[in-house]
Design a protein around this nucleic acid. Structure first.
Lengths: 195, 195
DNA sequence: CGTCTATTTGAATGTACTCAAAAGCGGTGG
DNA sequence: CCACCGCTTTTGAGTACATTCAAATAGACG
C-alpha cells in the first residue's frame, strides 16, 4: 500500500524504518470516481495528495469560461493547489480525477509536523518543489516559442501514454491550443503523408 | 551590506543573531558590469546569487538562435541555473547582467551546510522554491491562453518599472513575441486612439 | 437504442510573424 | 562638439499559423 510513496520519498532522502512508519501513519487513503473533484475552486484545502493509481488534472477556468490544464498527475505524482494549501487562501486551481483514482493525502499540519520533527522531510519537500520548478521552467520555455505543432510532438515524445489515456480536449487545454487544431495535428502525424 | 538579504530571509524564517552572522559569513560579494555573464551556457556553476542592486536576465537560446528570457532578477531576487547548481550538470540557462549589478553569492556546499546545520535554512529554501513554483505556475497560465496583447498589459501592470528599465527586445523575448509586434502594441497603448 | 459529449472537417477570419527598410539613440573618436 | 557607427526600435506589406464558427460524424454511457 505504501511502497510507492515510500519509494518516491526514497528518491531524494533516506528514512529510517521508524521515520517511514511515522510518515505512513499520517497518510489517509482516499478513492475518487472518474470526474469527481478533489478540490473545487473557491474552497480551501489542507491536503497534499499523492496519486497511487489513476489520473488527476490541475486546471483553471479563465474569464471566457475556457479551461486550461496545468498538469496531469498520474501514478507517483503529487498534486494540490499550492496557494491554498500553503498560504491558506481559496483554491484557484481545481483538481479533478479523470479516471477512478486512489490517493494518499497528507494534511498541512502533518506536513509541517514532519518537516520540523523529521529533518529528511523538510529536505524532501524542498527537493520536490525544486524539481517541480525545473519542470515548469522547461514547460514555459516550450510555450515561449515552440509552435503548436512542435509542442504537440514534444508532448507525444515525453508522455506517449497520456496521449491515449486522456481526452483530446484535455490535451489541447494543456498544450494551449483548440481541440479542433489538435485534431488536425493528429491527422497530420498519425496518418503521415505517404512519401 | 547584508540588510537586504537578511530581510529577504526574514520574510520566511526567523534567525538568531548568531545564525544570521554565520550565514552572512558564507556570502561572497560580486560586482559585474552591464552585459557581462554571470554564467555561460555549458559551464557548471556552484553559485546561487542574490541581487543586491541591478538586474540579471535568465535566458536561453533555441535551435534557431533566438533568445527567450525566463526571468529578470532585480533587487531582492535570487537567481541561478537550478539544473546546473543542484544537479551538477552544465548550465542551459545563461545569466547575464543587464545593468551594472551587485550580487551576493552562496555556494552549493555552503547552502547544503546551512540546510543541514541551521534548520531554518532548509525551510527557507523550501519556501523560496515553493514561491518560485507558484510564480511560474501563474506565468504559464498567462502563456496558455492570453493573447500577446493581454500578456503585455499584464506585464505592464505587474512590473511597470521593468518596462522602462529593460530593453524592449528583452521584454519581447520574455513575453514570447517579436520585438516588432511589441513595438506595435506599445504604440497602440501608450498613444491611445483619442476617442 | 437513444442521448449526450467528444472529435473531425472545412471555410472564413484574425493574430502574430517574417522580411525589409527607415528612423532613433548612444557611444566613440576625430 | 560634431560625425559616424552599431545597435535598437519603429513602420509597413505580405504571409503563415492557429482560431472561430458551423456542421457532420463518431463514441460512450445509461
Amino acid at each position: 500500500m505504501y511502497s510507492q510513496i515510500l519509494a518516491n520519498v526514497a528518491r531524494h532522502v533516506t528514512l529510517t524504518p521508524e521515520q517511514a512508519t511515522s510518515f505512513t501513519h499520517l497518510l489517509r487513503a482516499q478513492q475518487v470516481a472518474s470526474g469527481d473533484h478533489l478540490l473545487v475552486a473557491g474552497e480551501h484545502t489542507t491536503c497534499l495528495w499523492f496519486v497511487v493509481r489513476g489520473c488527476v488534472r490541475t486546471y483553471l477556468t479563465d474569464a471566457q469560461g475556457r479551461e486550461h490544464n496545468l498538469a496531469f498527475s498520474t501514478e507517483g505524482w503529487w498534486c494540490t493547489d499550492s496557494a491554498s494549501f500553503f498560504d491558506g487562501g481559496r483554491a484557484t486551481l481545481p483538481l479533478q480525477a479523470l479516471e477512478e483514482t486512489s490517493l494518499l493525502s497528507l494534511s498541512l499540519a502533518d506536513l509541517e509536523h514532519l518537516c520540523t520533527q523529521v529533518p529528511p522531510f523538510e529536505r524532501f519537500f524542498r527537493l520536490l518543489y525544486q524539481k517541480g520548478y525545473q519542470l515548469l521552467e522547461r514547460r514555459l520555455v516550450a510555450m515561449l516559442r515552440l509552435t503548436a505543432e512542435a509542442r504537440f510532438l514534444r508532448f507525444h515524445r515525453q508522455y506517449p501514454r497520456l496521449l491515449h489515456r486522456v481526452a483530446q480536449k484535455h490535451i489541447a487545454a494543456y498544450l494551449g491550443i483548440t481541440p479542433e487544431f489538435l485534431s488536425m495535428l493528429r491527422r497530420k502525424h498519425t496518418r503521415p503523408p505517404r512519401s
